[in-house]
Design a protein around this nucleic acid. Structure first.
Length: 474
RNA sequence: GGCCCGUUGGUGAAGUGGCUUAACACACAUGCCUUUCACGCAUGCAUUCACGAGUUCGAAUCUCGUACGGGUCACCA
């Protein structure tokens, strides 16, 4: 049996939205589930969209997600180079081979002529298809034109009749009429291959066995297959996956302000949690489990269970999964995803490392992503706290003033500012003011933190410091 | 406009002709527990699977039509 090989083939744009990442995850899981290899190939045939540092960015992203690349631009491999712009001669060679064998032809049509055809098609409300104008040029005509320095492209010769069909792992049988297939361009006039062509050549040369990609390619896959047939190559297994949509039901995009992986990462989402969440978008295991390690996923992943319909990216569910991962974090990792945000938002110069650790720790179970630490801890950093309606209502009840007064004097009497002593102060207040439960804790909590909820009260008070607490009890 | 694909609750989804009076999870709501929130627990939230017809003893599941949504039709990837 041949070894399963999948590839992730992004353009180097320096941006990866979660839909792209999900595709990479699926590709990785399919390879690893079958003990296969995962290849990274950079598709930079559009030189205008290239961004510096994009390759490192991709490596960095996949690395953070524990997706290990077996072969790629920064790895050794037998099938390189792994950057398409470094493979140019190859494409040209194969395109010319196709011409020789009668599966493709030179085309000298100018942009103007094509524009005109396009316009006409639009007016007549039909799909534009190249009219095959250059298909039957004689050898002499072609040589003459090339000699004259006329620009040319190489186009694939499509059958005019019949149908093409193939089996997609997710969508089943897909049928397209051949007459709807365009004599698509394989080699552009600048000598670069088109995406479609480079893909076929590279996938074959790199021994890719499973092609996983967005379902926008469902319709063009027959063209790919025709190419495989023309070369006499074995076709890969196709696995088309549906789209990931934004909350508005629209396609995810940077412009829409939709979060990219890096945005999420920078906000303190844990890559493993993001992977966990993304894999559940459009895929489900055959049981009810929802929390998966990468090893679990590799073991369980079955592309047959990928769903056909698009799914909406739901940040709330991601929050839930991420909170789950945060609860299990070691202190150091917890600090890493929270402290930078604290530093950003507040002046920490007079706070000790111990204080910061303690602060972050008591909120570990209360935040669903790193950056959330900022809003939830603001009571530690502002001078004046304001009570909302619910708090004020609570504070208007009888006996509250007395409880606060008693508690304040208890606090004043503490010499050694420890959580134990603070706890004793609360207990003493319980005795002396004759209140308990909600009527004991809530007034103190509200007065001191300005909120009706939060972590353990003694911890909060301890972190606030004696001075601040006394000020707020006034 | 042609062609292709999709449509189960606010969201992710299970479901492949009878065990479904449609799982599970998120979200939401209520209650219990708890000093509060959270956690946990319990309950509620789709009389119905876009709609209509057909096949069948029986349909979310099969067929056809309609609607809606998306994709595709570049010397972009």
């Amino acid at each position: 049996m041949t070894k399963v090989r999948t590839r992730f083939a992004p353009s180097p744009t320096g941006y990866m939205h979660v839909g792209n990442l999900r595709t990479a995850i699926f590709e990785y899981l399919i390879a690893k589930h079958n003990n296969g290899e995962f290849i990274l190939r950079i598709e930079d045939t559009d030189q205008t969209r290239k961004v510096d540092g994009a390759i490192d960015f991709i490596y960095n992203t996949l690395n953070l997600c524990d997706i290990k690349i077996d072969e790629g631009p920064n790895n050794k491999g037998e099938y390189g180079p792994y950057i398409q712009s470094e493979r140019l001669p190859l494409y040209k060679k194969y395109a010319e081979k196709l011409v020789e064998d009668g599966h493709a032809y030179y085309c000298f049509c100018t942009e103007e002529r094509l524009d005109k055809l396009r316009k006409k098609a639009e007016e007549e409300k039909r799909a534009f298809l190249y009219d095959g104008h250059c298909k039957n040029l004689t050898k002499e005509e072609i040589e003459k034109k090339i000699k004259n320095g006329e620009k040319y492209v190489i186009r694939q010769k499509m059958p005019k009749e019949g149908i093409s069909e193939y089996i997609d792992t997710v969508y089943g049988k897909i049928t397209v009429e051949n007459k709807l297939l365009e004599d698509q361009i394989l080699l552009k006039s600048d000598g670069y291959p088109t995406y479609n062509f480079a893909n076929v050549i590279d996938d074959h040369l790199m021994n890719i066995t499973h092609v996983i990609r967005g379902n926008e390619y469902i319709m063009s896959t027959p063209k790919y297959n025709l190419l495989y047939d023309a070369f006499g190559w074995e076709k890969p297994t196709y696995i088309h996956v549906s789209m990931v949509l934004g909350e508005d039901g629209q396609k995810l995009s940077k412009r829409n302000g939709d979060a990219s992986f890096m945005d999420l990462y920078n906000d303190g989402y844990i890559p493993q949690a993001i992977v966990n969440y993304l894999v559940m978008l459009g895929w489900s295991p055959d049981n009810n489990d929802e929390i998966f390690s990468m090893d679990d996923l590799i073991r369980l992943f079955d592309p047959k269970r990928i769903s056909k319909s698009p799914s909406v990216f739901d940040i709330k569910k991601l929050n839930w999964i991420n909170a789950h991962y945060i609860k299990k974090l070691e202190l150091n990792d917890l600090l890493n995803i929270t402290v930078p945000h604290l530093k950003d938002a507040y002046d920490l110069s007079d706070k000790s490392d111990e204080w910061i650790s303690e602060l972050v720790s008591i909120y570990q179970d209360h935040i669903s992503y790193g950056k959330e630490i900022v809003e939830v801890t603001d009571l530690f950093f502002k001078d004046k706290i304001e009570l909302d309606c619910e708090c004020r209502e609570f504070m208007e009840q009888d006996g509250i003033d007395n409880t606060i007064k008693v508690f304040k004097s208890e606090i004043e009497n503490i010499d050694d500012w420890t959580i134990e002593n603070i706890n004793s102060a609360i207990m003493n207040t319980k005795e002396k003011a004759c209140v308990k439960g909600k009527m004991l804790y809530m007034p103190i909590r509200i007065k001191v933190s300005g909120q009706m909820h939060g972590p353990e009260l003694p911890d909060t008070i301890h972190l606030l410091g004696k001075e601040t607490v006394l000020n707020r009890l006034k």
